[in-house]
């Protein structure tokens, strides 16, 4: 039980990578289906729809980044884990990772929905590609907010004894 703090800290890192990554995987898959549907009849649209398909993939990258930062702070990356991490500190790590995990998942799914709609828009109006990028990109804002908060919180957690 003395290592419970480290357990919660690693759980936080794992959740950031896991939940945000799962959201991105589902989102990129959704947009990929729409992209494949468009490319079936309009192969020349490949480049445009590929960019739209990739947009919901960023949350997974942000989740991975948070997991790296958390594990680095815990000394796991250098092979010297902070075994004495207190329960309070461990829970603080978990809490710091949650914004990225939860907002990452939700924003990835919603960004995917916007991307699917934008892919339909591009298939009908290829000249509107620039505008179609903006709609799903708006959702990215909230994933970036969550990333920012998680990073700031992780940096603050280090100060806890």
């Amino acid at each position: 039980m003395s290592n419970l703090g480290l357990f919660f800290a690693i759980l936080g890192a794992a959740l950031a990578a896991l939940i945000a990554g799962a959201g991105s995987a589902r989102g990129v898959g959704m947009a990929g289906q729409a992209a494949a549907g468009v490319v079936t009849d309009q192969p020349d649209m490949f480049g445009r729809v590929l960019i739209l398909q990739l947009l919901p993939g960023t949350q997974g990258i942000y989740g991975l980044l948070i997991a790296f930062v958390a594990m680095n702070n815990l000394g796991i990356m250098s092979g010297n884990p902070e075994v004495s991490c207190s329960l309070l500190k461990g829970l603080a790590y978990l809490g710091a990772c949650l914004p990225m995990a939860i907002v990452g998942y939700i924003s990835a799914i919603n960004q995917a929905k916007a991307a699917v709609a934008s892919i339909a828009l591009v298939s009908k109006r290829p000249d509107q590609f620039g505008k179609s990028m903006l709609f799903p990109a708006m959702v990215e804002t909230y994933a970036i907010f969550a990333l920012l908060i998680s990073i700031l919180a992780l940096n603050g957690v280090g100060a806890i004894g």
């Binding site: 959704m30 729409a34 549907g37 468009v38 079936t40 009849d41 699917v116 339909a120």
Partner: peptide, 18 residues
Amino acid sequence: MPEEYIYAVARVRGKEQK
């Protein structure tokens, strides 16, 4: 599942233009 008809709807979007 919202994903079920995404591919099909995208194909239909192409056909709608015709």
